[in-house]
């Protein structure tokens, strides 16, 4: 029944039938049939894609796939757009992390990049980055000036979930103790605040769209920092955002946590320097040995 003579219309009918059958099987809780129909549907959809593409060869956007250079953002500044857009993903991430100077998750990297740098950096493109970097390092150690590495957990020096760092940073900064998420959060707020202040002096090179995004990002940090936002004005109106005030408030709370966080991070770093190879220091300890707490079981 899946012959190649099927017209696009016939195929569409079959797709509709498959979807209906799939839903009926889901209602019947028939797991085996659901799996089978999902496969059939998937095959028919691919077939449809091929046929549709064949019938409309002019579909221009099909050319762009994940490995191709990012399309130029309409928001990119007028000057040097092509150059900025052609920056490889790892360099875009490096650029962003260098602004933040703390470990960051893909979502934050994307948001900061979007606010302060030209070109696009979808979070989906960060997914494979860590693996690629490690592979590159292992095939030719230290061939590159820097690597993008995971942050390390203080207790096991294992790779921390989702957090990216730069290999050239001091090890202390790349390690996550119990207080580090808060310290890094507050640090991030100060960095975004000062970036916002200096970028707003750039004039037209920084687009209003990007500025709005930067302000929205800073505000999302400010709501969780005591004293970072002014009092609400009228009912329903959001309090004004003052980057200086956010930065000062973040620094004020930072002073409370810095000492204990520094102690925890440097203890772990010392331990890491004593016990781990360079590769392990960069990409994390995969053996599940627990520091400090081997006696607990």
């Amino acid at each position: 029944m899946q012959n190649n003579e099927e017209t696009l219309d016939e195929l569409e009918n079959r797709l509709a039938q498959l979807r209906r059958a799939l839903r009926l099987a889901m209602v019947e809780r028939d797991a085996a049939r659901v799996a089978q129909l999902r496969q059939q549907l998937h095959r028919a959809e691919s077939l449809w894609e091929d046929k549709a593409a064949a019938e409309q060869p002019v579909s221009a956007a099909d050319a762009s796939d994940a490995s191709a250079p990012a399309p130029v953002s309409p928001d990119a500044p007028v000057s040097e757009p092509a150059l900025a857009a052609l920056l490889p993903t790892r360099e875009q991430v490096h650029q962003t992390l260098s602004l933040l100077e703390v470990p960051a998750a893909p979502k934050l990297i994307t948001a900061v990049h979007e606010a302060f740098f030209p070109g696009e950096l979808p979070a989906s493109r960060l997914a494979s980055l860590r693996r690629d970097e490690e592979r590159s390092y292992r095939s030719a150690p230290n061939a590159r000036p820097y690597y993008l590495c995971p942050a390390l957990t203080a207790d096991r020096l294992a790779p921390a979930r989702a957090l990216l760092t730069v290999s050239t940073w001091p090890l202390e900064r790349r390690i996550m103790g119990a207080h580090s998420p808060r310290v890094d959060f507050l640090t991030t707020a100060t960095k975004i605040a000062s970036a916002l202040i200096s970028y707003s002096q750039l004039g037209p090179r920084w687009t209003p769209d990007a500025q709005t995004r930067a302000e929205r990002l800073l505000r999302s940090f400010a709501v969780s920092i005591p004293g970072a936002l002014g009092p609400p004005t009228l009912a329903g109106h959001v309090p004004a955002l003052d980057p200086d005030q956010v930065g000062d408030a973040a620094k004020a709370e930072l002073s409370v946590h810095l000492e204990v966080d520094r102690r925890q991070r440097s203890e772990a770093a010392t331990w890491a320097r004593d016990r781990l190879s360079e590769a392990e220091r960069l990409f994390g300890n995969r053996l599940a040995s627990v520091r400090n707490s081997a006696s607990a079981d």
Binding site: R19, L22, M26, A61, P71
Partner: peptide, 23 residues
């Protein structure tokens, strides 16, 4: 089951097409 089979896949395709300019 309508959400899962009919709605969500098309919403995703639609969003992606919009994002990549595939009108």
């Amino acid at each position: 089951t309508f959400d899962a089979v009919e709605l969500e896949p098309r919403m995703i395709t639609h969003q992606q097409a919009l994002a990549s300019g595939d009108h």
